[in-house]
Each structure stands twice: as structure tokens, then as C-alpha cells.
Design a protein around this nucleic acid. Sequence first.
DNA 1: GTTAATATTTGAAGATTATTCAGTTATATA
DNA 2: TATATAACTGAATAATCTTCAAATATTAAC
Lengths: 150, 150
Amino acid sequence: MKDITSKLINLFKQGYCTPQIARIAKKIKEPSTTIHYNIKKLEREGKIISYKGVFDYKKIEEGHVTFILVNLSDDNYGEPEGVAQELAKDPRVESIDICTGDYELIIKLRTKDIDEYYEWIKNTVHKFKFSKSYSITSLKQVKTEFVELK
Amino acid sequence: MKDITSKLINLFKQGYCTPQIARIAKKIKEPSTTIHYNIKKLEREGKIISYKGVFDYKKIEEGHVTFILVNLSDDNYGEPEGVAQELAKDPRVESIDICTGDYELIIKLRTKDIDEYYEWIKNTVHKFKFSKSYSITSLKQVKTEFVELK
DNA sequence: GTTAATATTTGAAGATTATTCAGTTATATA
DNA sequence: TATATAACTGAATAATCTTCAAATATTAAC
């Protein structure tokens, strides 16, 4: 066993996919060279960043979703971007936004289970000196990354 | 002008992409047939749902992100799934979860601007009889769909 | 521990698809 | 209206995916 699947999952999380030009050409009834031209244009303009996989996260041990609202400590309050970019490096962080309202950050985190979540939040609160955080746990994911789940 | 790009964006939002087997094979130094076999296995097992595009949403007129926490009316409180699945059909809804805590739903919505957001929330509150909602606006997207933004 | 069944890996061949290129048509600009 | 630029497209080529059959490895049963 070479455990290729876990490597594949990591690659597909961010990219290593490509458009199906021939299939699209059939679908919208245009020549494949026209489709090709328009896709390259979207890429050139930077409108398309990447092509990636979407998973049934329960089946890949990432079924536990938590939204975490964060207050930063006084030290980091003025510049949340550095903290956010650091957190963004964690592959379990699906999204992170700097936001309005009572909290400065909103993080969408994917872990295997509540135990892994607990470890993550404990370590992260300590490391980044969050002054407060409020976690909302997903009970059921109905749609993710624009893809409806069945 | 045939406006092919907007059709492409819609298709890539949910799929119409495919893995780059040859590129992956080089990357992890395994034969492409082995990569092929393992990908098909992941698909067969339902671990991979789809391959899709990720966009620079500001450049495609979807740069305004809002997280909306929702309380349902008494009518819908007991069965939030129906409401969630209905909302999931909207292409501007990136994700929707049924959740713990003070609110029953958490929606991640992408609109062109705050005006489109206002129209959406006004219509949706009315249509689905939300008893209360709390919106958090993203000021800066640092990471989305597991992809770091620059 | 041996055997049988099943799953994974792999190279070679064929089928399909992406890409390049050159020419055409359409759109925008002066 | 003339000119420049952008968008579209068919034909040929290059690259990739997919199938297949055989080898190897893993698992299960006895």
C-alpha cells in the first residue's frame, strides 16, 4: 500500500484539475476551440484561480464542521491580516474572512470529529492569543463550495 | 459576442472539470495508470463528489460575502432542512449548514455588492419567514474553498 | 503457515482530448 | 469609413486519458 489516495485528496483540495473542454463544447453547442479560447482568457484575466476537487467530507474523515467567530487580543486587534494568513496555511481551515461586527475573524474549520476540533481550538486560542471566541457547530451540511450535498 | 464566459463560470461553479492525471503522476512520481486507478476508486467510493473551478470573485461580480445566521419562524423551526435545501438552490449561496447555538442556519452568500445583498435578504426573510437574522459582512477574504487568496 | 480470493500496481496500445496555428469574422477605435 | 484589435473557428498536431492484461501485493479462510 502506497497510500496514494491521501496524497490525491491533498492535491485536489487546491488544484490539479483542469476543464473538460470537449464536454463543455457539446453542452453549450460551440466549437471546442472557441471554448478553449474563452477559458484561456478567463485564466489570463485572473478570473479563474484554480480547478479543484470537492469531497464527501464525512467519507474522508473531515466531517466535523465548525464556524469560529474570533476576537483578537489587543496586540493583534489592529492587524488581523497577519493572523488570518497564518491560520490560512492550516489545511483544515476551509475559509477565513476578516469581518464586521462583534468579532474580527470568521473561520470555517473542518476536522475529523469534535475531539480534533477541541485540540485545534485549544492550541489556536493559545498560540494566537484570541481574547474570545464563539463556535457554531454544523449539524448538517446542505451545501458547500457551491455544491449541494445529498 | 456570444457571452460564453458567463456560461463557463456557471458550469465551473459546480463541475465540468477533471483531474490532471499526467501532472499528478509526475508530481508524486508514480505511473499515470496507478494514479488513474486510485482516482477512479475515490470516485467509485463517493469520496470525490465533483471537480470545479475557484474564482477571483471580485473579478466576476461576486465580491461581496455575507455570513447570515438565521432563526426560523415557529412554522419551520422543527424542520429546517426543507428551508435549507430550498435556499441551497440559489447559485449565490456558497454554503448552508444547519447548526447548533442561538441560530438554526448559517448561510454564506456571495453577491455583487451590498445592494444585491440587501435585495436578497429582504426577499428571503419575507419568503421563508425568518423570525430573526444576524449578518456578518466579510471585509477581506483571506481563504475560500481551501484556496488562499492573494 | 499455506492457500485462495481480492485488491493494487503497472506497461503497452488505442481512443479521446487539448493545443497550436492560420485564417476568418466581428467589434471597437480613430 | 478605415484601421486596429478582439473573438471565433476548422484542420493538424501534440498530449493526455483510458482500457486491457499481466504482475505483484494484500487480505481472509482454513
